Simulated assay, not measured.
Amino acid sequence: MHTVWKGSISFGLVNIPVKLHAATEDRDVKLRQLHKECNAPISYKKVCTSCNAEVKPEDIVKAYEYTKGKFVVLDDDDLKALKKENEDKAVEIVDFVKLEEIDPIYFERTYFLAPDKGGAKAYALLRAALGDSDKIGIAKIIIRQKEQLAAVRVYKNALMLETIHYPDEVRKVEDVPNVPEAENVQKKELDVALMLIEQLTTPFEPEKYKDEYREALLELIEAKKAGKETVTAAERETPAATNATDLMAALQASLEKTTKKKPAPKKRAAAKKKKA
């Protein structure tokens, strides 16, 4: 597994060297966009909205837009110094809470925690302590230049770290439009609804749930491949040795040269009068 973050987690005076690995992956089928005329992939360029010129990576700076059209530019050195200042600190578990006290809306992403060199014993100790106490640890961690609130918990025989949204990142339910106020619900309707829920209640078995759309899409792709319903991108044209700018300049120069050699019409007319 790829290591996302490397550091240590501490609770009290116990320090555990750990590595962080992503626990989930995106299995969506990625579809490319092609040019309909020649089936070549479409590329996206970074273009300046003012001068309409394509911008190279080295000409791009980061900034915060504090009001419309007004920015505070942040240097890479500033961001690196801030990142190092926070990443050098050990992740400290500051509180222990019950998992059921955290609403699922707060959870963001899940990572596996693996012990680094010399951390196996302390890792096992924290795992056992969390398991026996039926608690999870609340900590802070810097991942990809963002400070995250996190929950450290036991999953099977491993420790996991779940990043958690801060309260100001969770929108207020009061802002959700068209949510009905308390209304009168007929008892008969409620009884039938409860009966339906009871009939559909079952132990949670994640293996029985499948992404049917993704499976159907992959089957469609394979069927088209088998039926030779495929396209090939047109080969990129190799530009001529003389580019368009040079060619236009050469044509213009040729035109000017021809014009200079061509005798003026008035002088020729005057010459005919003299001979007459």
Rank of each mutant, 00 (worst) to 15 (best):
T3K: 14
V4S: 10
W5R: 08
W5C: 07
G7A: 03
S10I: 06
L13Y: 08
P17R: 10
A23D: 05
E25G: 06
E25P: 01
D26Y: 02
K30P: 02
L31S: 02
L31D: 00
E37F: 08
A40T: 14
I42N: 12
K45P: 02
K46L: 12
V47K: 12
V47F: 04
S50A: 10
S50L: 07
S50Q: 11
E54D: 03
V55F: 05
V55H: 05
I60T: 11
V61K: 09
K62N: 09
Y64I: 05
G69F: 07
F71K: 02
V73P: 01
D75Q: 14
D75C: 05
D76E: 15
A81N: 13
K84L: 10
E87V: 10
D88E: 13
K89F: 00
K89A: 07
E92W: 00
I93P: 01
V94D: 05
D95W: 07
F96M: 06
V97C: 01
V97Q: 04
E100K: 09
E101L: 07
P104A: 06
P104I: 09
Y106H: 08
F107S: 03
L113W: 03
P115H: 05
A120Y: 02
Y123W: 03
A124V: 05
L126H: 02
K135F: 07
A139D: 02
I141W: 03
I143V: 15
E147V: 15
L149Y: 08
L149C: 08
A150G: 03
A150S: 14
A151D: 03
R153A: 09
V154A: 09
V154C: 08
V154L: 07
K156V: 07
N157Q: 14
N157F: 06
A158K: 14
M160G: 10
E162R: 02
H165F: 15
E169L: 01
V173S: 13
V173A: 15
V176N: 03
A182V: 13
A182P: 00
A182R: 11
V185S: 06
Q186T: 14
K187L: 12
K188N: 09
L190F: 10
L200W: 06
P203Y: 07
E205Y: 06
Y209M: 05
Y209S: 07
D211V: 09
R214I: 01
E219L: 09
E219C: 00
E219T: 12
E219F: 02
E222G: 01
K224F: 13
K225H: 07
K228E: 13
K228S: 08
E229M: 13
T232Q: 12
E235S: 04
E235Q: 08
E235W: 00
E237K: 15
T238W: 04
T238Y: 06
P239Y: 03
P239D: 04
N243V: 14
A250N: 14
Q252V: 12
Q252N: 15
A253M: 14
S254W: 06
P263Y: 01
P263M: 03
R268Q: 13
K272I: 07
K273R: 13
K274I: 12
A276V: 08
